[in-house]
Amino acid sequence: MIDLLPHIINGLTLGLLFALIALGFTLIVGVMEVINLAHGSLFAIGAYFALTVIAGSWFAGTPFGAWWLSLPLGLRYVLALAIGPALAGLAGMLLELCLRPTYGKPPLYGLLLTFGAALVIEELIRLVWGTGEQNLALPQAINGAFLLNGMIFSTYRFFAAGFSIAAIVAVWLFLERTSAGAVIKAGAHDSEMVRALGYDLARLRLVVFGFGAALAGLAGVVMVPIWGLRPHVGVDIVIPAFLIIVIGGVGSFWGAVIAALLVGLVIGITGVYAAAWSTMSMYLLLIAILGFRSRGLLGRKSALEN
């Protein structure tokens, strides 16, 4: 008889990592009503910039490069955690500027544009960082493994899960406790009303897209030491992220978090009894939940349901 507890713990940590990936996605969909298929590419950009910060590869062979590499890995990692997402956020803002002509047009325009952007970004990554597999070095303090109840767990995985909790709480506090957050939430609820109240809607969209992209980049920096780094790494996350926000209810913050935990648990537990079905299990979960509740777990009621 297999002890299920380690697999439940594994499922929960996986769910927290999924939640981190889905946060930025749900924010952008909620406010902009754009399904950003380039979300995965922004995830990859954040990770690749972090790689550059940690490895200092762009300055290799120069005195600055030598000085940079003499800095402790822990410090470079912390800088990577800030710089990678920031640059991904800038890339997101650039993408939002490109998206502007599609506002007010059928959603297909935005969908196609972000899909095209994903392809372009992936090719750019190949040109700048190469096609091969890369490795994000980790400080010793968060690397390695530990024993828990006779089982070996990865220290970094728990660090990443803890980091995800911190990021979720920080984003929630930002949305709930700051005036900027209130405007973003209002924008998600009724963007025209926000405009009528005198807020610059164009700037709000730019900021939200940049913020969502930065969260994608942050997820990239945190996730790639587990999943590995290659130019198409972003493709791996778009589908789970999309699925999670649909299960949680489009635009719902806590819906996305709960859905991510559910998906992680379902994958973790299916892995014990029917590993071949572990990927399929999240799609089955989607069908099961939408079958009973078409707007997702915490999605807003549509006008048709009233």
Partner: peptide, 20 residues
């Protein structure tokens, strides 16, 4: 025999089974 679906990025479940 643990079947791993193509496109799997998280092997922790399988690796826990190996430990068990």
């Amino acid at each position: 025999e643990v079947l791993i679906p193509q496109g799997t990025r998280d092997f922790t479940s399988a690796l826990l089974k190996v430990q068990q």
